[in-house]
């Protein structure tokens, strides 16, 4: 008897299947989908690379072409949103895009290549031009000097001045 009652309830409920591929799916505002780097905003600081739990975001410096590559591999991403939380420039954010199926692994990458900045003292590349430019723009006039040389040179310069002070 109960068996029939259940079936009657089901009949009353009607069709529940969504017409997904034929009609677009409505997704909630909050959906954590594909992360996208806005290449104009990204400065290549690598903060997102540090926090990414599955290492979906990686960073590679190529000295020959003097480029820094921030590589986002969506195939490994776990959509935790840590990068979005951390990015100081708001360059990476999670979109609502979820239809990510791809025919080849290559399609799952996003690459952002930025020019490396060379320290004017030692000539070694240590970060991107864009980042130094933004830092210099943000700093007051008297503090800019410290930003445009690499940390190693900054150390030696400081040591140099200190030794003058002691003399």
């Amino acid at each position: 008897m109960n068996r029939i009652k259940v079936l009657l309830e089901n009949l009353r409920k009607g069709v529940v299947t969504e017409q997904y591929p034929f009609r677009p799916l409505r997704v909630p505002e909050r959906l954590r989908g594909k992360p996208v780097i806005d290449p104009d905003k990204c400065a290549g600081c690598g903060a997102c690379v540090n926090v990414c739990p599955p290492n979906a975001l990686t960073m590679r410096d190529d000295k020959h072409s003097s480029m820094r590559f921030i590589v986002l591999f969506i195939g490994r991403c776990i959509y935790c949103g840590k990068c979005e939380e951390t990015c100081p420039f708001g360059a990476i954010r999670l979109t609502k895009e979820f239809e990510l199926a791809a025919e080849s692994r290559e399609d799952l990458y996003q690459v952002v290549g930025l020019r490396l900045y060379h320290c004017p003292m030692c000539g070694e590349p240590f970060t991107t031009v864009r980042l130094i430019k933004r830092i210099v723009e943000a700093l007051p006039e008297e503090q800019r000097a410290a930003a445009i040389i690499c940390p190693r040179c900054r150390e030696s310069v400081t040591a140099h001045y200190r030794s003058y002070a002691r003399r």
Binding site: P28, E29, R30, L31, R32, Y79
Partner: peptide
């Protein structure tokens, strides 16, 4: 599952 998705952004991994 829909409720979880609306609250946390994912059906399964609330994060």
């Amino acid at each position: 599952m829909d409720l979880a998705e609306k609250l946390t952004g994912s059906r399964k991994m609330y994060g």
